[in-house]
Write a protein that binds this DNA or RNA. Structure first.
Lengths: 204, 204
DNA sequence: TGTACATCAGTGAACGCGCGTTCACTGATGTAC
DNA sequence: TGTACATCAGTGAACGCGCGTTCACTGATGTAC
C-alpha cells in the first residue's frame, strides 16, 4: 500500500470522483470484498469521515464503482466493434467474435472488476443490479450484432430467438469458469468456435 | 443466530465433522465471505481455539466445505440422472435436460453454495480449485451424457467436440446470471431449449 | 481389578488488528452588502 | 475595496465491534503394567 497522499489545499477540489477513482483502482487490486472506506480515504489523502459527504455509506461507493464498470465494459466492447466495420455476413461474423472476445478480455484483464459486476457482491446485497435484457448497453450491442448476422443470413433462422440468451450465457459462463480457474484459458476460443458452429454462424 | 449449544461431555466426540457441518450450514445462510471461525465454534458449542485442533486455519475449513459441496453437486446430478433410465435417444435427451436442470436447481436452492465453489472465493485465494475437465465427477457425468446422445444420433456430429464446453459454459453462465439477478428465472428453460436446438439434440 | 501416566481434546484469556460510522469541530470559500 | 457571514468541505477523536490466531492451561480418556 502506497503512502497516503498529502494535499496542499484544505479543500480537495474533486473529492467525490477522487474517491471513486481510488475505490475503482483498489477494487481492481484487491477485490470489492476487501475494499475498506478508510483505505480509500487514506489513498486519497483525506480523513475517513470525509467520504461521508459524498457517499452515504460504503456500499454506495461500491455501487457507484459497479455502475461505472458496467459502462466501461460496454465501452470496451464498442471499441472492439468499431475495429470491424462492414455490412456483409463476413463482417457480422467478425463482430460476433470481437464482441465475445472483448467480454473475455475485459474480464481477464481485471477479474475483480468482472467479479464485482457479475459476481456475488458479497458485502452488499443491496447493490442494485441491472437486468441485462432490459437495461444494458452491452446487451443491446449483442442484439444488434445478432440481428446483423440474421439479416445477412449468417445465423440459422430457427435459432434466432435463442441467440442472445445462448450467446451471453455461454460467453459469460466460459469467462467465469476460466477466470476462477475451473477451465484452462484456451477453452475460450473453443467455446467461440463451438458457439459459432452451433448457431450456424458463417457456415455457407 | 441461535444460542450456542451446550455440551454434556467435555470431549465433543466428533468435533471435526461437527465444525464442517456447522460451517456448511452457515455458508449456506450467509455466504462464505461472512463465515467466521468464532461463530462456527460458537454454533457447535466449543471455544474458538478448539477448531485449531482440526483445521490449520479458517481457510482450511472453508476449503473442506468447498470440496464437500462439489461432491454434493455431483451427487445431486447423479440422483437426477437416475430418474431417467433408458438407452434410446429420447432417454439420452431427457438426461441432458435433467443434468442441466439439476445444476440450475442446486444452485438456486443454495446460491451461496454455488458461489463458494464457482465464484470468487474472496477471502481465500488459496482454496484449491479443480480443473473441471480433468478431475470432476460432474464433468464426467456430462461427458457420458453427451456420448449417449452422440451414439443415439441425437447430437450433430460436427458439434460433438464442442459439446462439453458449450453445454457447461451455457448452463453455468445462465445459472450465474440468473442467481445474481441479471436475468429472469425463466430464462433458464429458454437457454435449455436453445442449447438443445443448437446442438441438434432430439431433432430428427 | 487398580493405578500411574501419557495423550490430546477443549478452555479461556489475551494479542493486536482494522473496520464502519458518528459527532462536534474548524478551516476555507465565496457572496451580499 | 473591505467586511460580515453563511456555507459546507474536511478533521480527528472516539464509539463499539468482531475478527483470526496464539498460548499456557486443564480436564477426560484410555492404555500399559
Amino acid at each position: 500500500m502506497a503512502m497516503p497522499k498529502v494535499r496542499e489545499t484544505y479543500h480537495h477540489g474533486d473529492l467525490e470522483s477522487a474517491l471513486l477513482d481510488a475505490a475503482t483502482k483498489m477494487v481492481g487490486a484487491d477485490g470489492a470484498e476487501h475494499l475498506s472506506l478508510r483505505a480509500v480515504a487514506a489513498e486519497v489523502g483525506v480523513s475517513p469521515s470525509a467520504a461521508y459527504h459524498y457517499y452515504q455509506e460504503k456500499d454506495s461507493l461500491i455501487s457507484c464503482v459497479g455502475a461505472r464498470l458496467f459502462e466501461e465494459l460496454a465501452d470496451f466492447q464498442e471499441q472492439a466493434l468499431l475495429k470491424v466495420p462492414g455490412k456483409g455476413a463476413r463482417a457480422a461474423r467478425a463482430r460476433f467474435r470481437a464482441l465475445g472476445r472483448a467480454y473475455f478480455e475485459w474480464a481477464s484483464m481485471e477479474p475483480n472488476f468482472f467479479r464485482l459486476i457479475f459476481g456475488c457482491y458479497c458485502s452488499a446485497d443491496e447493490v442494485e443490479v441491472e437486468v441485462l435484457r432490459d437495461n444494458s448497453r452491452a446487451w443491446r450491442l449483442l442484439q444488434t450484432c445478432l440481428e446483423d448476422l440474421y439479416r445477412t443470413g449468417g445465423l440459422i433462422p430457427a435459432l434466432r430467438p435463442y441467440a442472445e440468451i445462448l450467446t451471453w450465457s455461454a460467453v459469460h459462463g466460459a469467462t467465469a469458469l476460466i477466470i476462477e480457474g475451473h477451465l484452462p484459458k484456451d477453452s475460450f476460443e473453443s467455446l467461440l468456435d463451438g458457439l459459432e458452429r452451433s448457431l450456424g454462424i458463417g457456415i455457407k
